[in-house]
């Protein structure tokens, strides 16, 4: 069971990195989300699979068969944080679209970057707040 999870994590991370390297910012953000989920699965796997026993500890007894509840708690926290960050990334993306009219990284760079300073003839572009 763990090996399946491990392979899934590997595949998801690979997909995530492939998306991260894309030129389109929407895909970049999706890549971050896929990687985040892959890692959540990885941490969950660190707490062992293969048991349905609840992690209740009776007095004088060690629950050997129970799954470790701590990674599950950690992953819950990470999922909540991940959601919030996903929403924020989308908000920044929307702002980029509104400001530059594109989400292609190269074109955003071309639109936003200042011209080289040693060419005083080029028209200057205000860099600061509009």
């Amino acid at each position: 069971m763990e090996i399946v999870a491990a392979l899934t994590v590997g595949a998801l991370v690979a997909i995530g990195i492939w998306l991260l390297l894309d030129r389109n910012l929407v895909r970049v953000v999706l890549g971050v989300v896929v990687i985040g989920n892959a890692i959540n699965l990885g941490v969950l796997t660190a707490g062992r699979f293969g048991s349905r026993a609840a992690a209740f500890v009776a007095q004088g007894e060690v629950p050997l068969q129970a799954a470790n509840p701590l990674p599950q708690a950690l992953v819950l926290t990470a999922i909540v944080i991940g959601f919030a960050l996903f929403v924020f990334a989308l908000a920044v993306l929307k702002r980029t679209w509104e400001t530059h009219g594109t989400t292609e990284t190269d074109r955003v760079t071309a639109l936003a970057e200042e011209p080289a300073p040693d060419l005083p003839e080029t028209p200057l572009r205000p860099g600061g707040p509009a």
């Binding site: 702002r95 400001t99 639109l111 936003a112 200042e114 707040p129």
Partner: peptide, 8 residues
């Protein structure tokens, strides 16, 4: 504060 460069 926004602005093109800053959002990028």
């Amino acid at each position: 504060g926004g602005g093109g460069l800053r959002v990028k």
